[in-house]
Write a protein that binds this DNA or RNA. Structure first.
Length: 549
RNA sequence: GGCCCGUUGGUGAAGUGGUUGAACACACAUGCCUUUCACGCAUGCAUUCAUGGGUUCAAAUCCCGUACGGGUCACCA
């Protein structure tokens, strides 16, 4: 029996051969320095923050090199696959405004000429290449069961030998064609393993775009390439897909670094051009004084849905990711605030070799700054969108009270140093609730220095009846408060007060605070004059009567 | 355990043998400004680059050992 007949026996239903696919997916017509990159998540749970990070990095790389950015879904693990996983990935990328040139648009549709972009739909392609490798003695069927493999691993552990299916442990390597055919006819399940030509004692040196020179022993382990369900393992899918899609730069998490010898070996065995690799460090988290990679299982906050739910401005999240990718982004951004952040070109040599801690403070700071620079209308619109999904009642309220909401958000906004009161859309309600009649039903007032109720009422009554005019501008408004202070025995001038505090009942700040707390319950608010103007005289009076009781 | 990778303030980091007395940003502290808060401004915050040794006139930067941290060793990606 020839190898060809043997391959036909084991893989009889492969529609096309390797040549067909090589022709079907020709080299891309791109400039020499254009990068073809991809993000390749698997739909095995919620979408991880790291996927967004890699997506952002790759999109930026492709855009700045006039290349191609691909989304490829790695759904070859049917046991762990989650319902609707593919759609969630697509939605998450869309939500964070990370657009791709090729890939699935939804579960059924896709764009691009190098598809399918969902691995489970590429079965025939993998089959064709396995068949080719079988014909060329690069791969062999292996019938080892999980229990056999487990026993082998224990034996290797006890003998302190390297673990894996290699050398004398790779027993199925020596199966004859007849033996294989016999087992297959008996319906024994099997996989295809790589017939690795490597020698563990040889070293290979490789240049990683992020890590630099790395040295490894050659791979000599006969890894599984095609699982018994006919789907490929990651290793095999990576080599075939990235070859056929003509990926030029593999940007992936550095947990793959140790698989590099295997991957390079396969590219070389198949005569494919080896892509460039950039193994990027994961974003870490600190827990009990120890760092570790943010994980899906332990860190629910890694779920990108949490970012949506908490109302992070997506632009700020993107800025943060850019900072993590290339720390010199921050400096560039300071000088180019008006530009699109993707005009900054991420480079590999500026990427950090080791993992950075996720810095929530920094992200919140970026978010705070970003929101402070939007117009009130922009904040309002984003807020409505967020609230529609996560706080329906509040959404109804601010849609009904659109004018008040926008005016409130506009307080001290259009200046060189705008207020920075909130970083997240979910925080805004707690900042402005008191502006709405429907929500203003206070139980606690944050009175500060002046707490005597008679004195409080006295201040409020004299102020409203004698001095307050809703049409006053800021200076006039403040002058009236000062006049009020003079009349009631409070210092209208802070310097005078500091010189001789004993001459006064208190100062203008104390008096302002009484008005402020009376109208908002809070001692910390934006400009009082603006708040009063928005509330209107009737509401001001109503709130004062509330305190009178 | 084997094989890899890493280690600069609380955090992200700049730094590639000599204007580094170690940028910058976030956080923190103090002060100023101020009708409160937020903002803004000013100042402070690593006598030292995990650690021990070596090379050199000169080391955070190069070499070796040690410690610590991370990754990986699946029919998971």
């Amino acid at each position: 029996m020839t190898r060809k007949e043997y391959a036909n026996f084991l893989l009889p239903n492969i529609e096309h051969d390797v040549d067909y696919y090589e022709k079907k997916y020709p080299k891309r017509d791109l400039d020499n320095d254009s990068m073809v990159v991809r993000v390749a998540p698997s739909p095995t749970g919620f979408v991880h923050f790291g996927t967004i990070f890699q997506g952002k990095v790759n999109q930026n790389l492709a855009k700045n090199s006039k290349g191609v950015f691909i989304l490829r879904v790695e759904d070859t693990d049917q046991k762990r696959e989650v319902e609707n996983g593919i759609n969630e990935i697509i939605e998450a990328l869309n939500y964070f405004d990370i657009s791709y040139d090729e890939g699935p648009i939804n579960k059924d549709l896709e764009k691009g000429n190098y598809g399918p972009y969902i691995q489970s739909k590429r079965k025939d392609i993998y089959g064709a290449y396995i068949k080719y490798m079988l014909e060329n003695d690069m791969v062999y069927p292996s019938f080892a069961t999980a229990t056999e493999l487990d026993a082998q691993r224990k034996e290797q552990e006890s003998k302190k030998e390297r673990i894996g299916y290699y050398g004398k442990y790779a027993v199925d390597r020596n199966l004859t064609m007849d033996e294989v055919i016999e087992k297959v006819k008996n319906k024994e399940p099997y996989v295809f393993r790589l017939k690795s030509p490597g020698n563990f004692n040889n070293k290979i040196v490789f240049h990683d775009l992020v890590k630099g020179e790395v040295e490894f022993p050659e791979n000599d382990i006969d890894y599984v390439l095609l699982k018994s369900d006919g789907l490929p393992t990651y290793h095999f899918a990576h080599v075939i897909d990235d070859h056929l899609m003509h990926t030029t730069h593999i940007t992936r998490g550095d947990e793959w670094l140790s698989s590099l010898p295997l991957h390079i070996q396969m590219f070389q065995m198949l005569g494919f051009e080896v892509p460039q690799y950039a193994h990027i460090a994961p974003i870490m988290k600190e827990e009990n004084g120890k760092r570790r990679k943010i994980s899906k299982r332990k860190d629910p906050e890694a779920n990108v849905f949490e970012f949506k739910k908490r109302g992070f401005p997506i632009v700020a999240v993107k800025q943060y990711l850019m900072t993590v990718a290339n720390s010199n982004f921050e400096e560039w951004f300071e000088q180019n605030e008006d530009k699109d952040i993707d005009e900054f070109a991420i480079t590999f040599d500026k990427m950090n070799v080791s993992g950075a801690l996720f810095d929530m403070e920094k992200l919140l700071n970026l978010a705070k700054n970003y929101l402070s620079k939007l117009t009130a209308l922009e904040v309002y619109e984003n807020l409505v969108n967020w609230a529609k999904e996560f706080d329906k009642d509040f959404a109804d309220l601010i849609i009904r009270e659109k004018e008040i909401t926008i005016k409130t958000l506009d307080i001290e906004r259009n200046s060189i140093k705008p207020r920075k009161d909130f970083a997240l859309y979910s925080e805004i309600k707690n900042n402005i609730w008191y502006m709405f009649k429907d929500l203003f039903n206070p139980e606690n007032y944050e009175w500060q220095k002046i707490t005597d109720k008679d004195e409080i009422m006295n201040i409020l009554d004299v102020y409203i009846n004698k001095y307050y005019d809703i049409n006053d501008d800021n200076d006039e408004w403040f002058n009236k408060v000062k006049l009020l202070c003079d009349e009631l025995g409070y210092a209208s001038n802070m310097k005078d007060y500091k010189k001789n505090p004993e001459n006064y009942k208190g100062n203008v700040a104390d008096v302002s605070t009484v008005i402020r707390v009376a109208l908002t319950t809070s001692s910390r608010t934006p400009n009082l004059k603006d708040i009063m103007q928005i509330l209107g005289l009737d509401e001001i009076k109503r709130r004062i009567e509330k305190i009178r009781g």
